[in-house]
Design a protein around this nucleic acid. Structure first.
Lengths: 187, 187
DNA sequence: TATTTTATTGTACACCTGTTCATTTAAAAT
DNA sequence: ATTTTAAATGAACAGGTGTACAATAAAATA
Protein backbone atom coordinates (compact mmCIF):
# COMPACT_ATOMS: atom_id res chain seq x y z
CA UNK A 1 0.00 0.00 0.00
CA UNK A 2 1.68 3.16 -1.13
CA UNK A 3 1.37 6.67 0.30
CA UNK A 4 -1.45 8.92 -0.89
CA UNK A 5 -0.18 11.36 -3.50
CA UNK A 6 -1.68 14.28 -1.63
CA UNK A 7 0.43 13.47 1.41
CA UNK A 8 3.58 13.36 -0.66
CA UNK A 9 2.71 16.65 -2.32
CA UNK A 10 2.00 18.38 1.01
CA UNK A 11 5.20 17.19 2.63
CA UNK A 12 7.29 18.09 -0.40
CA UNK A 13 5.82 21.58 -0.51
CA UNK A 14 6.61 22.13 3.13
CA UNK A 15 10.14 20.84 2.78
CA UNK A 16 10.80 23.01 -0.27
CA UNK A 17 9.36 26.03 1.49
CA UNK A 18 11.60 25.37 4.50
CA UNK A 19 14.69 25.01 2.32
CA UNK A 20 13.86 28.31 0.62
CA UNK A 21 13.41 30.10 3.91
CA UNK A 22 16.60 28.65 5.35
CA UNK A 23 18.51 30.42 2.59
CA UNK A 24 17.39 33.78 3.93
CA UNK A 25 16.79 33.35 7.68
CA UNK A 26 17.72 31.12 10.61
CA UNK A 27 15.61 28.09 11.51
CA UNK A 28 14.58 29.46 14.92
CA UNK A 29 12.96 32.51 13.32
CA UNK A 30 10.77 30.53 10.91
CA UNK A 31 7.21 30.04 12.13
CA UNK A 32 4.51 27.68 11.01
CA UNK A 33 2.29 30.35 9.52
CA UNK A 34 4.83 31.78 7.12
CA UNK A 35 6.01 28.31 6.18
CA UNK A 36 2.44 27.36 5.26
CA UNK A 37 1.86 30.58 3.38
CA UNK A 38 4.95 29.97 1.24
CA UNK A 39 4.11 26.29 0.74
CA UNK A 40 0.51 27.15 -0.09
CA UNK A 41 -0.65 24.66 2.51
CA UNK A 42 -3.47 25.24 4.94
CA UNK A 43 -2.13 25.68 8.43
CA UNK A 44 -4.50 23.02 9.74
CA UNK A 45 -3.02 20.59 7.23
CA UNK A 46 0.43 21.25 8.65
CA UNK A 47 -0.61 19.82 11.99
CA UNK A 48 -1.79 16.62 10.31
CA UNK A 49 1.87 15.95 9.45
CA UNK A 50 4.13 17.74 11.92
CA UNK A 51 4.01 19.29 15.36
CA UNK A 52 6.32 22.22 14.63
CA UNK A 53 8.86 23.59 12.15
CA UNK A 54 11.57 21.38 13.61
CA UNK A 55 9.54 18.37 12.52
CA UNK A 56 9.96 19.32 8.87
CA UNK A 57 13.67 19.90 9.33
CA UNK A 58 14.06 16.67 11.22
CA UNK A 59 12.53 14.56 8.48
CA UNK A 60 15.12 16.01 6.12
CA UNK A 61 17.90 15.40 8.60
CA UNK A 62 16.87 11.77 8.83
CA UNK A 63 17.59 11.34 5.15
CA UNK A 64 20.98 12.94 5.59
CA UNK A 65 21.71 10.49 8.39
CA UNK A 66 20.64 7.67 6.07
CA UNK A 67 23.24 8.90 3.64
CA UNK A 68 25.87 8.56 6.35
CA UNK A 69 24.74 5.00 7.02
CA UNK A 70 25.05 4.18 3.35
CA UNK A 71 28.54 5.70 3.16
CA UNK A 72 29.50 3.46 6.03
CA UNK A 73 28.17 0.31 4.43
CA UNK A 74 29.68 0.96 1.01
CA UNK A 75 33.34 0.12 1.70
CA UNK A 76 32.32 -3.21 3.18
CA UNK A 77 30.43 -4.14 0.08
CA UNK A 78 33.45 -3.27 -1.98
CA UNK A 79 36.06 -5.05 0.07
CA UNK A 80 34.03 -8.17 0.59
CA UNK A 81 33.26 -7.44 4.27
CA UNK A 82 36.83 -7.17 5.42
CA UNK A 83 36.75 -5.23 8.62
CA UNK A 84 39.12 -2.34 8.35
CA UNK A 85 40.60 -0.49 11.25
CA UNK A 86 38.59 1.98 13.28
CA UNK A 87 40.47 5.09 12.23
CA UNK A 88 40.11 4.66 8.48
CA UNK A 89 36.39 4.05 8.99
CA UNK A 90 35.85 7.24 10.90
CA UNK A 91 37.06 9.45 8.06
CA UNK A 92 33.73 8.68 6.44
CA UNK A 93 32.07 10.77 9.14
CA UNK A 94 34.28 13.77 8.51
CA UNK A 95 33.60 13.64 4.79
CA UNK A 96 29.89 13.28 5.43
CA UNK A 97 29.72 16.32 7.72
CA UNK A 98 31.80 18.34 5.27
CA UNK A 99 29.43 17.45 2.44
CA UNK A 100 26.42 18.67 4.40
CA UNK A 101 28.30 21.45 6.13
CA UNK A 102 25.39 23.89 5.77
CA UNK A 103 23.04 21.53 7.54
CA UNK A 104 25.46 20.70 10.30
CA UNK A 105 25.83 24.41 11.00
CA UNK A 106 22.17 24.22 11.99
CA UNK A 107 22.41 20.87 13.78
CA UNK A 108 25.17 22.21 16.01
CA UNK A 109 23.60 25.63 16.47
CA UNK A 110 23.13 26.52 20.14
CA UNK A 111 19.38 26.94 19.73
CA UNK A 112 18.81 23.53 18.11
CA UNK A 113 17.28 20.82 20.25
CA UNK A 114 19.84 18.35 21.55
CA UNK A 115 17.69 15.72 19.81
CA UNK A 116 19.62 16.40 16.59
CA UNK A 117 22.90 15.79 18.37
CA UNK A 118 21.52 12.51 19.70
CA UNK A 119 20.40 11.43 16.23
CA UNK A 120 23.90 11.81 14.87
CA UNK A 121 25.35 10.26 18.01
CA UNK A 122 23.22 7.15 17.65
CA UNK A 123 24.07 6.75 13.99
CA UNK A 124 27.80 6.92 14.72
CA UNK A 125 27.40 4.82 17.84
CA UNK A 126 25.90 1.99 15.84
CA UNK A 127 28.94 1.89 13.56
CA UNK A 128 31.25 2.19 16.53
CA UNK A 129 29.60 -0.73 18.26
CA UNK A 130 30.06 -3.02 15.28
CA UNK A 131 33.69 -2.01 15.06
CA UNK A 132 34.59 -2.42 18.73
CA UNK A 133 32.31 -5.28 19.79
CA UNK A 134 34.79 -8.02 19.05
CA UNK A 135 37.80 -6.33 20.56
CA UNK A 136 36.23 -5.79 23.98
CA UNK A 137 34.30 -9.02 24.48
CA UNK A 138 36.14 -9.59 27.77
CA UNK A 139 34.24 -6.66 29.30
CA UNK A 140 30.81 -7.07 30.93
CA UNK A 141 27.93 -5.93 28.72
CA UNK A 142 27.13 -2.83 30.78
CA UNK A 143 30.69 -1.62 30.57
CA UNK A 144 30.75 -2.21 26.82
CA UNK A 145 27.78 0.14 26.42
CA UNK A 146 29.61 2.82 28.38
CA UNK A 147 32.76 2.27 26.37
CA UNK A 148 31.01 2.58 23.03
CA UNK A 149 29.35 5.83 24.13
CA UNK A 150 32.70 7.06 25.43
CA UNK A 151 34.41 6.33 22.11
CA UNK A 152 31.59 7.67 19.98
CA UNK A 153 31.30 10.93 21.83
CA UNK A 154 35.07 11.47 21.73
CA UNK A 155 34.77 11.60 17.95
CA UNK A 156 31.80 13.92 18.26
CA UNK A 157 34.05 16.12 20.37
CA UNK A 158 36.20 16.55 17.28
CA UNK A 159 33.07 17.53 15.37
CA UNK A 160 32.19 20.12 18.02
CA UNK A 161 35.66 21.63 17.78
CA UNK A 162 35.39 21.53 14.00
CA UNK A 163 32.07 23.36 14.14
CA UNK A 164 33.46 26.00 16.49
CA UNK A 165 36.14 26.84 13.91
CA UNK A 166 33.55 26.84 11.13
CA UNK A 167 34.68 23.56 9.55
CA UNK A 168 37.96 25.12 8.47
CA UNK A 169 40.05 21.96 8.95
CA UNK A 170 40.15 19.31 6.20
CA UNK A 171 38.62 15.87 6.79
CA UNK A 172 42.00 14.23 6.13
CA UNK A 173 43.72 16.39 8.72
CA UNK A 174 41.01 15.54 11.26
CA UNK A 175 41.56 11.89 10.58
CA UNK A 176 45.26 12.29 11.28
CA UNK A 177 44.39 13.93 14.58
CA UNK A 178 41.99 11.17 15.51
CA UNK A 179 44.64 8.58 14.81
CA UNK A 180 47.27 10.35 16.90
CA UNK A 181 44.86 10.96 19.80
CA UNK A 182 44.08 7.30 20.20
CA UNK A 183 47.81 6.67 20.57
CA UNK A 184 48.10 9.48 23.08
CA UNK A 185 45.39 8.71 25.58
CA UNK A 186 47.10 6.07 27.67
CA UNK A 187 50.63 7.23 28.04
CA UNK B 1 26.72 49.74 42.80
CA UNK B 2 24.40 46.97 43.85
CA UNK B 3 21.37 45.55 42.07
CA UNK B 4 17.99 47.22 42.55
CA UNK B 5 15.92 45.29 45.09
CA UNK B 6 12.96 45.21 42.71
CA UNK B 7 15.04 43.37 40.12
CA UNK B 8 16.12 40.78 42.64
CA UNK B 9 12.55 40.31 43.81
CA UNK B 10 11.23 39.89 40.26
CA UNK B 11 13.88 37.37 39.27
CA UNK B 12 13.47 35.41 42.48
CA UNK B 13 9.73 35.21 42.01
CA UNK B 14 10.13 33.93 38.48
CA UNK B 15 12.71 31.35 39.50
CA UNK B 16 10.56 30.10 42.37
CA UNK B 17 7.54 29.91 40.11
CA UNK B 18 9.54 27.92 37.57
CA UNK B 19 10.81 25.51 40.21
CA UNK B 20 7.24 24.98 41.41
CA UNK B 21 5.97 24.30 37.92
CA UNK B 22 8.85 21.93 37.14
CA UNK B 23 7.61 19.72 39.95
CA UNK B 24 4.34 19.14 38.14
CA UNK B 25 5.07 19.51 34.39
CA UNK B 26 7.94 19.38 31.89
CA UNK B 27 9.92 22.50 30.99
CA UNK B 28 8.79 22.49 27.35
CA UNK B 29 5.14 22.77 28.36
CA UNK B 30 5.60 25.82 30.59
CA UNK B 31 4.74 29.09 28.91
CA UNK B 32 5.56 32.66 29.85
CA UNK B 33 1.98 33.62 30.70
CA UNK B 34 1.39 30.95 33.30
CA UNK B 35 4.85 31.49 34.77
CA UNK B 36 4.07 35.19 35.23
CA UNK B 37 0.64 34.48 36.65
CA UNK B 38 2.13 32.19 39.27
CA UNK B 39 4.99 34.59 40.03
CA UNK B 40 2.57 37.52 40.20
CA UNK B 41 4.75 39.39 37.73
CA UNK B 42 3.42 41.44 34.85
CA UNK B 43 4.16 39.72 31.58
CA UNK B 44 5.76 42.88 30.21
CA UNK B 45 8.15 42.85 33.15
CA UNK B 46 9.22 39.33 32.22
CA UNK B 47 10.61 40.59 28.93
CA UNK B 48 12.71 43.18 30.74
CA UNK B 49 14.70 40.28 32.20
CA UNK B 50 14.43 37.25 29.95
CA UNK B 51 13.55 36.35 26.38
CA UNK B 52 11.78 33.09 27.14
CA UNK B 53 11.21 30.44 29.82
CA UNK B 54 14.56 28.85 29.02
CA UNK B 55 16.22 32.08 30.09
CA UNK B 56 14.97 31.62 33.65
CA UNK B 57 16.07 28.01 33.69
CA UNK B 58 19.44 28.88 32.22
CA UNK B 59 20.23 31.43 34.93
CA UNK B 60 19.65 28.70 37.48
CA UNK B 61 21.76 26.25 35.51
CA UNK B 62 24.62 28.74 35.51
CA UNK B 63 24.71 28.63 39.28
CA UNK B 64 24.77 24.86 39.20
CA UNK B 65 27.71 25.00 36.82
CA UNK B 66 29.42 27.41 39.21
CA UNK B 67 29.02 24.80 41.88
CA UNK B 68 30.85 22.33 39.65
CA UNK B 69 33.67 24.83 39.18
CA UNK B 70 33.94 25.27 42.91
CA UNK B 71 34.01 21.51 43.50
CA UNK B 72 36.88 21.34 41.07
CA UNK B 73 38.89 24.08 42.72
CA UNK B 74 38.40 22.78 46.26
CA UNK B 75 40.76 19.80 46.26
CA UNK B 76 43.57 22.00 44.97
CA UNK B 77 43.09 24.42 47.83
CA UNK B 78 43.18 21.53 50.25
CA UNK B 79 46.20 19.72 48.87
CA UNK B 80 48.25 22.86 48.34
CA UNK B 81 47.92 22.83 44.55
CA UNK B 82 49.29 19.37 43.98
CA UNK B 83 48.08 18.30 40.60
CA UNK B 84 46.43 14.96 40.90
CA UNK B 85 45.86 12.56 38.08
CA UNK B 86 43.14 13.10 35.53
CA UNK B 87 40.97 10.19 36.56
CA UNK B 88 40.62 11.09 40.21
CA UNK B 89 39.70 14.62 39.18
CA UNK B 90 36.92 13.52 36.90
CA UNK B 91 34.99 11.76 39.65
CA UNK B 92 34.03 15.26 40.80
CA UNK B 93 31.91 15.55 37.66
CA UNK B 94 30.05 12.31 38.34
CA UNK B 95 29.28 13.37 41.90
CA UNK B 96 28.15 16.77 40.73
CA UNK B 97 25.74 15.37 38.14
CA UNK B 98 24.40 12.90 40.66
CA UNK B 99 23.77 15.66 43.18
CA UNK B 100 21.74 17.64 40.65
CA UNK B 101 20.29 14.58 38.97
CA UNK B 102 16.84 16.15 38.62
CA UNK B 103 18.25 19.09 36.72
CA UNK B 104 20.45 17.02 34.49
CA UNK B 105 17.39 15.01 33.51
CA UNK B 106 16.18 18.27 31.96
CA UNK B 107 19.57 19.34 30.58
CA UNK B 108 19.87 16.05 28.69
CA UNK B 109 16.23 15.92 27.65
CA UNK B 110 15.82 15.60 23.87
CA UNK B 111 13.82 18.81 23.64
CA UNK B 112 16.36 20.96 25.48
CA UNK B 113 18.51 23.30 23.41
CA UNK B 114 21.99 21.95 22.79
CA UNK B 115 23.17 25.20 24.42
CA UNK B 116 22.85 23.51 27.81
CA UNK B 117 25.05 20.65 26.64
CA UNK B 118 27.63 23.18 25.46
CA UNK B 119 27.57 25.01 28.79
CA UNK B 120 28.47 21.84 30.64
CA UNK B 121 30.96 20.91 27.94
CA UNK B 122 32.81 24.20 28.28
CA UNK B 123 32.93 23.97 32.04
CA UNK B 124 34.45 20.49 31.89
CA UNK B 125 36.67 21.45 28.99
CA UNK B 126 38.26 24.23 30.99
CA UNK B 127 39.25 21.77 33.72
CA UNK B 128 40.42 19.28 31.15
CA UNK B 129 42.61 21.85 29.47
CA UNK B 130 44.38 22.73 32.69
CA UNK B 131 44.96 19.07 33.39
CA UNK B 132 46.29 18.06 29.98
CA UNK B 133 48.05 21.24 28.86
CA UNK B 134 51.43 20.30 30.25
CA UNK B 135 51.42 16.74 29.06
CA UNK B 136 50.82 17.56 25.39
CA UNK B 137 53.00 20.64 24.93
CA UNK B 138 54.78 18.90 22.05
CA UNK B 139 51.60 19.17 19.94
CA UNK B 140 50.81 22.26 17.85
CA UNK B 141 48.22 24.55 19.46
CA UNK B 142 45.45 23.73 17.00
CA UNK B 143 45.81 20.03 17.63
CA UNK B 144 45.78 20.60 21.38
CA UNK B 145 42.37 22.28 21.07
CA UNK B 146 41.04 19.29 19.18
CA UNK B 147 42.53 16.89 21.68
CA UNK B 148 40.99 18.67 24.66
CA UNK B 149 37.56 18.63 23.00
CA UNK B 150 38.06 14.97 22.13
CA UNK B 151 38.91 14.09 25.73
CA UNK B 152 36.19 16.25 27.25
CA UNK B 153 33.45 14.91 25.06
CA UNK B 154 34.51 11.30 25.70
CA UNK B 155 33.68 11.89 29.35
CA UNK B 156 30.42 13.51 28.36
CA UNK B 157 29.71 10.33 26.41
CA UNK B 158 29.74 8.53 29.74
CA UNK B 159 27.26 11.10 31.04
CA UNK B 160 25.00 10.49 28.03
CA UNK B 161 25.04 6.76 28.65
CA UNK B 162 24.43 7.42 32.33
CA UNK B 163 21.43 9.59 31.50
CA UNK B 164 20.02 6.97 29.16
CA UNK B 165 19.98 4.46 32.01
CA UNK B 166 18.45 7.07 34.35
CA UNK B 167 21.63 7.60 36.40
CA UNK B 168 21.42 4.11 37.81
CA UNK B 169 25.20 3.57 37.99
CA UNK B 170 27.16 4.90 40.98
CA UNK B 171 29.71 7.69 40.50
CA UNK B 172 32.47 5.44 41.83
CA UNK B 173 31.66 2.73 39.35
CA UNK B 174 31.70 5.27 36.51
CA UNK B 175 35.09 6.44 37.63
CA UNK B 176 36.39 2.87 37.51
CA UNK B 177 35.08 2.61 33.95
CA UNK B 178 36.69 5.88 32.94
CA UNK B 179 40.00 4.70 34.31
CA UNK B 180 39.86 1.37 32.49
CA UNK B 181 38.77 2.97 29.19
CA UNK B 182 41.79 5.22 29.05
CA UNK B 183 43.94 2.10 29.34
CA UNK B 184 41.96 0.38 26.64
CA UNK B 185 41.90 2.86 23.82
CA UNK B 186 45.29 2.26 22.28
CA UNK B 187 45.70 -1.46 22.30
C1' DT C 1 -16.69 5.48 -15.11
C1' DA C 2 -18.97 5.57 -10.74
C1' DT C 3 -18.30 5.07 -6.00
C1' DT C 4 -15.86 5.20 -1.81
C1' DT C 5 -12.34 6.87 0.99
C1' DT C 6 -9.64 10.28 3.02
C1' DA C 7 -6.60 14.34 2.72
C1' DT C 8 -7.19 19.20 2.47
C1' DT C 9 -9.62 23.43 3.18
C1' DG C 10 -11.94 27.35 5.46
C1' DT C 11 -13.67 29.14 9.42
C1' DA C 12 -13.86 29.88 14.12
C1' DC C 13 -12.21 30.15 18.86
C1' DA C 14 -9.50 30.78 23.12
C1' DC C 15 -5.11 31.57 24.32
C1' DC C 16 -0.07 32.94 23.86
C1' DT C 17 3.57 36.13 22.01
C1' DG C 18 6.34 40.20 21.61
C1' DT C 19 6.15 44.97 21.64
C1' DT C 20 4.80 49.86 22.75
C1' DC C 21 3.71 53.61 25.86
C1' DA C 22 1.75 56.32 29.41
C1' DT C 23 1.18 55.75 34.33
C1' DT C 24 2.17 54.15 38.90
C1' DT C 25 5.16 52.84 42.43
C1' DA C 26 9.14 51.55 44.90
C1' DA C 27 13.95 52.02 45.62
C1' DA C 28 18.12 54.91 45.64
C1' DA C 29 20.30 59.23 46.22
C1' DT C 30 20.53 63.75 48.21
C1' DA D 1 12.25 63.82 54.37
C1' DT D 2 12.30 65.13 49.82
C1' DT D 3 13.74 64.54 45.28
C1' DT D 4 15.34 61.77 41.63
C1' DT D 5 15.70 57.60 39.17
C1' DA D 6 14.16 53.62 37.14
C1' DA D 7 11.55 49.30 37.63
C1' DA D 8 6.94 47.48 37.39
C1' DT D 9 2.30 47.90 35.79
C1' DG D 10 -1.84 47.85 32.77
C1' DA D 11 -3.81 48.33 28.54
C1' DA D 12 -3.70 47.68 23.81
C1' DC D 13 -2.33 45.73 19.28
C1' DA D 14 -1.07 42.72 15.43
C1' DG D 15 0.15 38.39 14.70
C1' DG D 16 1.03 33.30 15.88
C1' DT D 17 -0.62 28.78 18.10
C1' DG D 18 -3.21 24.61 18.56
C1' DT D 19 -7.54 22.62 18.04
C1' DA D 20 -12.27 21.45 16.23
C1' DC D 21 -15.59 20.58 12.69
C1' DA D 22 -18.34 20.80 8.62
C1' DA D 23 -17.58 21.23 3.70
C1' DT D 24 -14.82 20.31 -0.31
C1' DA D 25 -11.93 18.01 -3.48
C1' DA D 26 -8.68 14.76 -4.89
C1' DA D 27 -7.00 10.20 -4.92
C1' DA D 28 -7.84 5.17 -4.56
C1' DT D 29 -10.81 1.42 -5.53
C1' DA D 30 -14.24 -1.38 -7.74
Amino acid sequence: MKTDLRIIKTQESLRNALLSLLKIKPLESINISELCRLAKINRGTFYLHYQNVHGVFESYFEEIIDDLRKSYEEPYLQTDFNIQNLKSDMIIIFHHVKRYEGFYQIIFDEASPVRYYYKLFHAIRKMMKELTMNSVDFLPEKQVEYFVSYQTNAIMGILLEWHSNHFSTSPDELNEYLYSFSKLVSE
